[in-house]
């Protein structure tokens, strides 16, 4: 008999007869658990080393998404345009918009485009682990690469929708100004929040299969609560005569905060009191959610790193 078998026999007997157990043998030779979760800083470094994979994966998904249609990549521009047209028809013309909002088309579309970015990231994130089990069971990489790639894919789409949005906003009579330079900063913060939210929802979606069925209702409720079609201040305080703190709490919702800041930048008449600057409650909320969601999201996702393959 060659050595391996006898070693196994030794080790198997080890637990019972006092010889070296396998775990000890592994320790003696410096072997490590093949599925051990790396320490958090190491995990982040591994993730950084996989940045090319993450980017390529995101781009590839975007390319393959439209590859079977005749118009191809043109849909990346057409989809947001058609969405804008439908929202405007629905809420601007049929439902009559809002009397208190001067530039309703710009108001609505800004809200819609900003909200859609978060909504799509969360929805995609929920499937990023559960929909890629075969990949997870075949190759080794930090699993956070997948929700990250999905967020980047949505970011690439957003870059195009933002271009469309800016054109439309100018067509509605708003003038480009220096505050537009703040747009990337706001989007950066929103992206940080989205990455975090995507990571959290990815871990939840990996074990709760029914989340995908539930998510449309959650995001729709979120949409209505975020003041995409209406001004929270108008409806809650002026029309419904509720105390100001109710409106303030609604503005603290991350989606509402990012929408408000973007409207402050793009629409001159949105908040004349503060000009193009956001009120403190908005920018504090934006910064808080970006930092909190990103750090919590990575930590929360990392905690289950070794279990994602089980499904």
């Amino acid at each position: 008999m060659s050595q391996p078998e006898s070693a196994v026999a030794d080790a198997q007997a080890g637990g019972r007869s006092g010889q070296e157990p396998l775990a000890k043998l592994a320790e003696r030779y410096g072997l490590r658990r093949s599925i051990a979760r790396p320490r958090f800083p190491v995990y982040l470094r591994q993730l950084w080393e996989r940045r090319h994979f993450i980017l390529t994966y995101a781009t590839s998904r975007n390319v393959s998404k439209y590859s079977s249609s005749a118009l191809g990549q043109l849909w990346q521009v057409l989809t947001p345009l058609l969405n804008a047209a439908i929202y405007f028809l629905m809420f601007g013309l049929i439902l009559g918009g809002s009397k208190n909002i001067t530039n309703y088309p710009a108001f609505l579309l800004t809200g819609m485009f900003v909200f859609t970015y978060t909504q799509r990231t969360v929805t995609a994130g929920a499937k990023s682990i559960s929909g890629n089990l075969s990949l997870i069971r075949a190759l080794h990489f930090p699993r956070a690469s997948l929700p990250l790639a999905y967020t980047i894919q949505e970011l690439q789409q957003l870059a195009i929708s933002m271009g469309v949005l800016l054109v439309i906003v100018v067509l509605t009579g708003e003038l480009p100004n220096w505050f537009w330079l703040m747009i990337p900063l706001v989007l950066l913060m929103q992206t940080m929040f989205n990455i975090g939210a995507g990571l959290v929802i990815a871990r939840m979606g990996a074990s709760m299969r029914d989340l995908n069925q539930l998510l449309p209702f959650i995001t729709r409720t979120w949409l209505y609560a975020s003041g995409v079609f209406f001004s929270i201040q108008d409806k809650v305080v002026e029309a419904a005569h509720m105390p100001q703190w109710v409106a303030d709490i609604m503005y603290l919702n991350p989606a509402a905060s990012y929408i408000e800041w973007m409207r402050d930048i793009l629409i001159a008449s949105h908040n004349p009191e503060w000009g193009h600057n956001p009120p403190p409650i908005i920018w504090i909320s934006c910064v808080f959610w970006a930092v909190f969601a990103l750090s919590f999201g990575f930590w929360y996702f990392w905690r289950a790193e070794e279990r994602y393959g089980r499904g």
Partner: peptide, 16 residues
């Protein structure tokens, strides 16, 4: 499991 792609229910895999 040896590749570290499936988590063990019990026991362990040690690798170099």
């Amino acid at each position: 499991a040896i590749a570290g792609l499936l988590p063990p229910h019990a026991g362990a895999v040690y690798t170099d």
